[in-house]
Amino acid sequence: MPVDGPALVLERLGVRYGSTVALADVDLAVEAGEVVAVVGPSGCGKSSLLRAVAGLVGASGRIRAGGRALHALPPHRRGVGVVFQDHALFPHLDVAGNVAFGLVEARAASLVRRARVHAWLERVGLADRAGDDVERLSGGERQRIALARTLAPQPPLVVLDEPFASLDPGLRARLSAEVASWLRELGAAALFVTHDLDEALAIADRVAVLRAGRLVQLAAPAELMTRPADPWTARFVGHDNVWEGEAAAGLPGSPAAALLLAERTRWWQDPATVPPEDGTPARCLGATPRRDGWRLELEVPAWGVRVAWTARTRELAGGSPPTAGTPGTLAAPADAWRRWDAPR
């Protein structure tokens, strides 16, 4: 569907529950066919953002979609498809009846409706369950029907609230990849709330990070990982080597805060092997086993900090981790650093 400009534009979107501010001044634009993951810790306003877009909570600010102002419309006129965390399948309808629900409301002709329901049941792999009681479905099957029900009317906007939270990890990874492809096929703009960062990075075109009701960063997955907006975001996306204030004072360049991307650094266990020019003496304090290797804790006296450094087993001399106290050299090229200066 040709749309001028972004498919969804949020302007200064805010949600409050009584005196509690759940969401404040969020500006966000999503393109048609784009999947934006919304991440953040519990209570950061992720769900409030989705519910505000769908019209399920009152919100301040503006919501526009394809030239339409959504914020003044009741939920049933917004054309925003919602996939709920707990599926919310209708128990009084069978599988096909659930998938058909929105098509009936859209006044789809009976033939079209039947064809569309069948096509979606095929797509989610449950064509033979059309007449089944939804209460007899497994968790994964329920989730597929919930997705089919939401996507069958082909909404231009789709919001998904932790849709895979109740599924086991294997199923979760498979289904989330499928959903992302369906959404792109439909050309729908999608907001996708998840607490699983790996999932967000895997399927989203861009990731929005919310903290205490505010949007702190909106970036493509790779950029989010390598250029987090601030130290909090850096830690949130899983970086260990983040220092602020006093702790950062001794680092090269004396920044207010800094992130060291450990995967871009190298560590030589044996100081006798030629250390590179930009190497800094570092000593191993200990090692913790990991699934794919060892997590070393390195002390870097020159910087006054400790660095967490993950080593694959094959990268280690003799395949075993260094003993505590082993001296070595840590090399951190310029692109391994992300520095923040104190706000002036």
Partner: peptide, 29 residues
Amino acid sequence: VPVAWREAAATLGASPWRAARRLDLPVTR
């Protein structure tokens, strides 16, 4: 009737009146 069901009905395009007929009434029959 769980709020989530009613929200699902609304976001699938059912007005409150339609939701009462297609959801509330049948599930509370």
